[in-house]
């Protein structure tokens, strides 16, 4: 059996809302330590991988490792029907591995709403990329910045054009774009430390200058999720997709892998 409970408006609900513009269906792997979710956007530009550790929930139970496909958009629609203060339970029993049961319980426990959501096939949403994020050394540059700043950069640039060029070297981290109506260049002078301060831009890893061109539509999606957290970590390499990561509690994470634009 798999069962978790959370309060309405918890971080899981926030994340599911924020990934909706990219993801319809996701594959979820559950274990006693927590659950991971992988999803690929329909255009194959972004791969999303997240791990929610069990300790971020009010209660969490998973008797046996299991894997299920979930229609995220439908699930979010159901979760939106909950009321303030409700306790939300998500449950899958071994007897019925076709549905996921979602229950809302009102704070005074006088009202309970049960809903069943059918599980779907999401095997195509797996990608064997788990090794990427274990290879920090493969990224040419990794920096951290306040997620609100990251969102602001993406928004400011998207006024001018659809693409952003992110350049990183020892001295400067820049976000720039050039369009028909003009150009924008936002430069940050980074701190260099292993312990990034929450309010500053920090270069944590640097093996050489690197620049990547990315579609701002996808970057804005990453930024949307990141604003649920204080800081965002961004890894660049010419040989790997861009990585955007936020930490969920001690051991959890949400990572976006974004394919860059390339010159053909």
């Amino acid at each position: 059996m798999f069962e978790l409970t959370m309060a309405k408006g918890s971080i899981l609900q926030g994340v599911l809302e924020a990934i909706l513009d990219l993801v319809n269906v996701a594959n979820v792997d559950c274990s006693s330590k927590g659950f991971s979710l992988q999803a690929l956007d329909t255009e194959h530009v972004v791969f999303l991988s997240l791990f929610f550790p069990s300790e971020v929930f009010r209660s969490y139970r998973c008797d046996e490792d299991c894997s299920m496909g979930i229609a995220i958009a439908d699930m979010v629609d159901l979760l939106r029907a909950s009321n303030d203060g409700d306790i939300i339970t998500i449950k899958v029993t071994d007897q019925n591995f076709e549905d996921i049961t979602i229950t809302f319980e009102s704070p005074d426990k006088t009202k309970t709403t049960d809903m069943d959501l059918q599980l779907v096939d999401a095997r195509s949403h797996r990608l064997k990329i788990s090794e990427w994020h274990d290879m920090e050394s493969e990224y040419q540059a990794i920096f951290c910045m306040p997620s609100a700043q990251f969102m602001l950069n993406c928004k400011s640039l998207s006024v001018i054009d659809d693409d952003v060029v992110i350049r990183v070297n020892e001295e400067v981290i820049s976000f720039s774009t050039k369009g028909k109506s003009g150009c924008v260049n936002i430069s940050h002078v980074p701190n260099k430390t292993d312990n990034p301060e929450k309010a500053s831009v920090t270069l944590t890893h640097m093996r050489g200058p690197v620049s990547l061109t990315l579609n701002l539509r996808y970057m804005k999606s990453c930024a949307k999720v990141s604003t649920l957290f204080d800081q965002v970590k961004i890894g660049l390499s010419t040989k790997l997709p861009l990585m955007v990561e936020c930490k969920i509690a001690e051991k959890g994470y949400i990572r976006y892998f974004v394919a860059p634009k390339i010159t053909e």
């Binding site: 194959h44 394919a259 634009k261």
Partner: peptide, 14 residues
């Protein structure tokens, strides 16, 4: 002239 890379192809071409 930049074109959007496909994530799977990008990964396979590493």
């Amino acid at each position: 002239n930049k074109h959007q890379a496909d994530l799977e192809k990008f990964y396979n071409n590493r």
